[in-house]
């Protein structure tokens, strides 16, 4: 029996949800596994927020990433979780592009330390952003047209 387009889309959404959720959980975990000061230093390197804000974000952001990942995988509060991950990735990606275009040779800080911003990291995070935006669009489309 051939798969309908709708069925393929449903499977793709589940797979992308789990993959993106897993990536978010991993990103949060590797930051939590290190002393928080390391992530704070990474945030400060971007020279966008003051040090007190970098410290606050270093304490909170990894937990938020884990929570967003868990919600994505569980499929709970789908619109909230996809909007959150999209906004987060949009901010991360913009900051990375800004740093890269400005010639700043700093670490990405995406998945722990020692990963300088490069074309590779931009393509990777850009792809994650595209997936997250796709899931957000699906989440809101499903709201209008419940399956």
């Amino acid at each position: 029996m051939p798969f309908s387009k709708n069925k393929i889309l449903q499977v793709a959404v589940v797979v992308l949800r789990v993959v993106l959720g897993g990536i978010f959980i991993y990103a949060g975990y590797v930051k939590l596994a290190e002393p928080w000061q390391l992530f704070a230093a990474g945030i400060a390197d971007y020279e966008v927020v003051p040090m007190w804000a970098a410290k606050f974000l270093a304490h909170t952001l990894p937990w938020f990433e884990v929570l967003a990942g868990v919600l994505l995988i569980a499929g709970r509060w789908f619109r909230t979780s996809t909007v959150s991950t999209s906004l987060l990735l949009l901010v991360f990606f913009s900051l990375m592009v800004r740093a890269f275009a400005g010639g700043k040779e700093i670490n990405c800080g995406c998945f722990g330390p020692n990963e300088p911003i490069s074309w590779k990291t931009l393509v990777r995070d850009g792809s994650m952003l595209a997936v997250s935006l796709f899931l957000t669009a699906i989440a809101f489309r499903n709201r209008r047209k419940p399956a």
């Binding site: 000061q37 704070a40 230093a41 400060a44 390197d45 040090m51 410290k55 040779e105 700093i106 330390p113």
Partner: peptide, 30 residues
């Protein structure tokens, strides 16, 4: 290394560069 000055910290077989010295308490905490 992406910048100078960088302090390469080696501890228990792991190396970690540190280049943020604006706030010493952050380095000390780490």
């Amino acid at each position: 290394l992406t910048q100078t000055p960088t302090l390469m910290v080696t501890y228990k077989l792991r190396q970690q560069p540190w280049a943020q010295f604006g706030d010493y308490s952050l380095f000390r905490g780490y």
